[in-house]
Amino acid sequence: MTHLKRFQGIPMSKSMRSLCKEEDYAFLGKSESTTKETTEGAAALEDDWRDRKEERVRRRLEREQQEKDRLREIEERKKEKEQQWRTHVAEVSSSQEKTLQDRLARLRRFREFQKKVLGEDSGMEGEAAGLTVNKLLTRM
């Protein structure tokens, strides 16, 4: 009957109290002492949970920042390569244009040389000789 006195504060019907034994209430005694521990433990768990959540958020932000940095570096490299390519193309086209200008100048000098030689060989002078030489050069 000691259990009746011990757990009298628990709301329960009279018929139920008589049926229950002390063992049935034993968990209540344990739960009262563990309730304080549980509240302290729950607070500690909640602090740990918050810490872990903050850590996860911090790591996520770090990953996002690293990803942004990586993408920015990739963009910079891409722009740099594009600029190098443009410079290369400009240099190549410039050298090709210079080469073509040089060839054109050489061809003009050669054509003048041919006109002069053909004019001297034919022995003609003046405009008539110029027209004949041009016709001969055109056939060649």
Rank of each mutant, 00 (worst) to 15 (best):
Phe113Pro: 00
Gly123Leu: 03
Arg109Ile: 02
Glu97Pro: 05
Arg108Glu: 02
Arg63His: 10
Ala90Pro: 02
Leu104Arg: 14
Gln66Leu: 11
Ala128Lys: 15
Lys78Trp: 14
Phe113Met: 11
Glu64Tyr: 04
Thr132Cys: 15
Glu80Ser: 08
Phe113His: 11
Gly130Cys: 12
Arg111Ser: 14
Glu80Val: 01
Gln114Asp: 02
Asp102Gln: 13
Arg63Phe: 03
Gln114Phe: 10
Val89Asp: 13
Glu97Tyr: 10
Glu73Phe: 02
Leu71Asp: 14
Gly119Arg: 06
Val117Ile: 15
Val92Pro: 03
Ala90Trp: 03
Ser95Trp: 04
Lys81Pro: 05
Phe110Thr: 11
Arg72Ala: 13
Leu100Tyr: 06
Arg77Val: 01
His88Asn: 05
Thr87Phe: 02
Phe110Ser: 13
Ser94Cys: 04
Ile74Gln: 06
Glu127Tyr: 12
Asp102Glu: 00
Glu76Val: 06
Lys116Met: 08
Gln101Asp: 07
Asp69Thr: 06
Asp102Trp: 06
Leu131Tyr: 08
Glu127His: 13
Asp121Val: 01
Ser95Leu: 10
Ile74Phe: 02
Val117Tyr: 11
Leu107Gln: 04
Arg109Phe: 00
His88Gln: 09
Gly130Pro: 01
Arg109Thr: 04
Gly126Lys: 14
Glu73Ala: 11
Met124Ser: 06
Lys79Trp: 09
Met124Trp: 04
Lys98Ser: 11
Gln83Asp: 07
Gly130His: 09
Met124Gly: 06
Glu97Ile: 12
Val92Ser: 05
Ala90Gln: 13
Asp121Thr: 01
Glu75Ser: 03
Ser95Phe: 04
Lys68Cys: 10
Gly126Ile: 04
Leu100Met: 04
Gly119Thr: 15
Arg108Pro: 00
Phe110Met: 10
Glu73Asn: 05
Val117Cys: 06
Glu125Gly: 01
Leu71Gln: 12
Ala105His: 08
His88Ile: 04
Arg106Asp: 00
Lys115Ser: 15
Arg86Gly: 05
Arg77Ser: 02
Leu131Asn: 11
Gln114Leu: 15
Thr132Gln: 09
Glu97Ser: 13
Ser94Gly: 12
Arg63Ser: 10
Arg103Leu: 13
Phe110Gly: 09
Lys79Ile: 07
Lys98Met: 09
Ala128Asp: 14
Ala129Lys: 04
Gln84Phe: 05
Thr87Trp: 03
